[in-house]
């Protein structure tokens, strides 16, 4: 629908759309070829040099392990994804919510900002053992660790977006005397959306980091547990099967957020690098 309407904008735009389409497909094809090449080299290296499976299993070994133990992998992966997504959604909602509150009540922001700035710098993952102590290695712990890692980047980026709303937009709100929440919905939040998504994308990777490390230090569930058990037994194939799954989950999660971004913030090129 959107592509269709853009195609009718005139010749210049038309060729631009076609060109970007061609370069996108070229990019995808070359990326796919590189992945295949990479896997082929990996397989060749492991089989030609006779690297033992304990050191580095080849892609075929990993694949057959993934297929023959798929129930084991899927159960573990679902637990991991479950906690990561729960933590992600909670952390993102709280981050955006707190950013709005801080933006509304400036005194509150001034009071808390210095603490938050210091917290941005401290790796939140060191707090995981404290959470185990307080909550026990249960459901709450596995949700809270990713939540903690998502909350801060989302809060930080949302606040940046809200605080850089140009005065012109604020003036429009004043001029029409539209209500505060109307202004939020129509001026402030849309202006902050690119920044919010920048935070959400950082959060997408951080959520997975959080749940994996949480499962490493309290191996009670998920792919982290599977990896710790196979590390203890020296069963490297399971380790690499889990790494592959985590990679796939990570890329899928990130790309999904990116896809939502391109739909929601269609007017913006995205703030990836600033």
């Amino acid at each position: 629908m959107e592509l269709h309407s853009r195609l009718q904008l005139g010749d210049g735009k038309h060729s631009q759309v076609v060109e970007s389409f061609i370069s996108t497909s070229h990019r995808i094809i070359s990326a796919a070829l590189m992945v295949i090449l990479f896997i082929a080299i990996w397989e060749l290296v492991t089989s030609v040099f006779g690297i033992s499976q304990r050191i580095l299993p080849g892609p075929i070994d990993i694949w057959s392990s993934l297929v023959s133990f798929q129930d084991l992998y899927i159960t573990a992966a679902i637990d991991t994804i479950d906690s990561a997504l729960f933590g992600y959604v909670l952390g993102a909602a709280l981050g955006i919510g707190f950013a709005i509150v801080f933006n509304e009540w400036d005194a509150l922001r001034r009071m808390f900002m210095p603490i938050l700035v210091l917290t941005f710098v401290v790796p939140k993952i060191v707090f995981a053992p404290i959470l185990i102590l307080w909550l026990g290695a249960g459901v709450r712990y596995f949700i809270l660790v990713p939540m903690l890692l998502v909350f801060f980047p989302v809060l930080e980026n949302t606040l940046t977006g809200l605080r850089t709303v140009p005065d012109g937009l604020k003036d429009i709100g004043e001029l029409y005397q539209s209500g505060k929440w109307f202004n939020y919905r129509n001026y402030h939040l849309p202006h902050a959306l690119p920044d919010i998504f920048a935070g959400l994308k950082i959060g997408a990777t951080q959520a997975l980091v959080g749940i994996i490390v949480a499962e490493f230090i309290a191996p009670e569930q998920g792919l982290g547990q599977l990896m710790i058990i196979s590390l203890g037994r020296g069963d490297t194939v399971f380790l690499w099967g889990s790494i592959v799954l985590i990679g796939v989950i990570g890329i899928t999660l990130y790309k999904s957020v990116e896809l939502i971004e391109s739909r929601v913030v269609f007017w913006h090129d995205g703030v990836t690098n600033r």
């Binding site: 997408a204 990777t205 997975l208 980091v209 994996i212 490390v213 490493f216 990896m227 710790i228 196979s230 590390l231 490297t236 380790l239 690499w240 889990s242 790494i243 985590i246 990679g247 990570g250 890329i251 990130y254 790309k255």
Partner: peptide
């Protein structure tokens, strides 16, 4: 985009 911490057991 892949969490690098997942490689920790392999590195060990």
């Amino acid at each position: 985009v892949v969490p690098k911490v997942a490689f920790a057991p392999a590195i060990i």
